[in-house]
Amino acid sequence: MSVVETGKQEKLLQRKEALERRVTGKETMVQSDRIFGWGLKAGGLLIMALFLVVLLVCIVTAWPSIRKFGFSFLWSQAWNPSRGIFGGLTYIIGTFWVTGIALVISIPVAIFSALFLSDYAPKWMSGIVSTLMEMLAGIPSIVFGAFGITFMVPILRDHLEPFLANTLGTRWDFFNGDALGYGVLAAGIVVGFMIVPLVATVTRDSLLMVPQEMVEASYALGATKAETLFFVKLKAVIPGIVGSVILGFGRAVGETMAVLLLIGNQASIPETIQDVGYTISSLLANTFTYAVIDPLYAAAEVELGLILLMMTLVVNTLGRKLLMRLMGGRLAGSVGGG
């Protein structure tokens, strides 16, 4: 092994020397190369430094709260700024509610639309729909929030939420809440709309990359189009879907403006799907400028921000691991990077 490697290295060295000989003004080239290299290194280091500084500032600011409440911050519901008591459970659970509803709504829609675009839509149509989808992904979240208030809230309040309460709600309390329009359902649905384009485009791109031979082999075995789609193509792109869902999670979990406008901003843990709630990001957006008045209050809010950061980090890492296993360690880096 080592003999082969030294041989390789020698070859490389020779090639390099030949290249250098061919180039005139050797000195300046090396110099400029070095400067260029420094520039690149500075860029790379800056990103690392930025991440570390943000993390460090957050930890230092959050320290009074971390020291005072310890791990109980994670499972305490008490949040009373005027008495200096802080626990983040309500906001953590609220964040999961919205993210959960958003994913439940967006994943099927996104996969169906991706399948439609890759295999069923006529060419002219898939072009139009793809462009529209990319435009949809670029709409600012505040616009989605405004759409939610003017369009979704009245529909939920007058139709969907009473309907859920009168049908599923008679059997399960989970669906039997007060039809206010605002709440975790409204926020979840709109955030779901926001991540559909994200999940759908990545899924469509992976579907288009499935080797034609696999599809032909499936047809040759007598499978129908739908069977081929579901059991061959979709199965082959599971890693891509997982990766896109992770991206979607990252977007949903930190989404602020649209959620703030729709969730009803009430610090209570939702018991039914119609209930109001509160997420970490909307709490910070609503109250952080006021929280700076009291170091402990600000610390508690920054600690919630840290928890949000950890949530995305953990999900991203787990997602990468999962992808790695599913893909046999090949494509993971290119898809899982949130």
Partner: peptide, 15 residues
């Protein structure tokens, strides 16, 4: 108690 941002027991909040 009184506060600019109290812990509201019920309701829904708007910005």
């Amino acid at each position: 108690g009184r506060d600019m941002s109290p812990a509201w027991p019920v309701g829904s909040g708007y910005n």
